[in-house]
Design a binder for these strands. Structure first.
Length: 291
DNA sequence: CGCAGCGCCTGAAGGC
DNA sequence: TGCCTTCAGGCGCTGC
């Protein structure tokens, strides 16, 4: 059965990992359900990564924010309930229907609503921390600027990327130059900016293009409520629409939308990476021969 | 200290 | 038919 895949000769795509647009879409829908409500009870599946869910019992939720891919549930006792969805995490209103073997945590609110956290592969995580004390969550602690805020500039991106000689895409996935970019939107932004994912240095014009591309790709994906390749659903259970806008991720061997030559898929630092070898050139002095 | 490498985890799919 | 292997991937941790 063909799902939303554009390549019928390939197997189903992997689980869609919630990146910034998906988490932001969930946040917008979750916020009116949870904000203002007191957490009167909670349940957790018995592993340390989700155990902190019960620490939020008794607190009232003031608002729900987001930093990168992290949901920040602001509690009225100067603490934050931090939720990371990992790869397969889903938040939803509990239906109380069939028992779900993949339920990892749930929170009961003072109006009877139950917020459930399902995560098949348990790559997600829950933490309750003192407000803005993220020392127990290294990636959040070191998280780069929000891409759609004024803190994220072409200059800041250039500076950050120039401080390391790791591959540009690897740096983007580290969450330090900018928050919230994962494998899908990294491939998309690099394609739009015509920057080679394995380049180990970047020019100012490239950084400026990449800065613009990251913002435009993410903003457009938020408008489309995220990318649903397979499993991702919004909080209200709908699919996103951004999968139809993808030009690089998952499009290996398809013609480049800019030059019509076949896109290439490589493995870069253990991440599937699709790009156009014609449009996305390496700097001449550091040509990657792949040998 | 930076970063490469690995482990976590499970469903899907291919090989035999 | 069914068992075994491989793959996907964000992030935390270890150790060089």
């Amino acid at each position: 059965m063909a799902r939303t895949l554009t390549r019928p000769d390939r197997p189903d795509p992997p689980d869609t990992v919630p990146e910034l647009p998906e988490v932001e879409t969930i946040r917008r829908q979750l916020s009116p359900v949870w904000s203002g409500r007191r957490i009167v009870d909670a349940w957790t599946y018995g592993t340390p990564k989700f155990a902190a869910a019960v620490d939020a019992i008794g607190a009232r939720v003031e608002s729900i924010g987001r930093r990168g891919k992290y949901l920040m549930v602001e509690l009225d006792d100067d603490r934050q309930l931090v939720i990371h969805l990992g790869m397969t995490g889903v938040l939803r209103v509990g239906s109380g229907a069939e028992p779900d073997p993949y339920l990892r945590a749930s929170w009961s609110l003072d109006n009877g609503t139950i917020v459930e956290f399902q995560d098949v592969r348990r790559f997600g995580r829950v933490a309750v921390v003192a407000r803005d004390d993220h020392s127990s969550l290294p990636t959040l602690h070191e998280l780069g600027p929000e891409p759609l805020s004024d803190d994220f500039t072409a200059a800041s991106l250039y500076r950050s990327l120039s401080a390391s000689h790791r591959a540009i895409k690897t740096q983007l996935l580290s969450q330090r130059p900018v928050a919230g970019v994962g494998n899908i939107y990294a491939d998309e932004a690099l394609w739009h900016a015509r920057v080679h994912p394995a380049a180990r240095s970047i020019t100012r014009p490239q950084a400026t293009r990449l800065h613009t591309a990251i913002r435009e790709v993410l903003a457009a994906a938020v408008e489309r409520r995220g990318t649903t390749l397979r499993d991702y659903r919004t909080f209200s259970g709908e699919r996103g629409d951004n999968q139809h806008a993808l030009v690089a991720y998952g499009q290996g061997d398809a013609p480049c939308a800019r030059c019509a030559r076949a896109l290439r898929t490589i493995t870069l630092d253990a991440r599937t990476t699709t790009f156009c070898a014609t449009c996305q050139r390496l700097p001449r002095e550091r040509r990657f021969d792949g040998a």
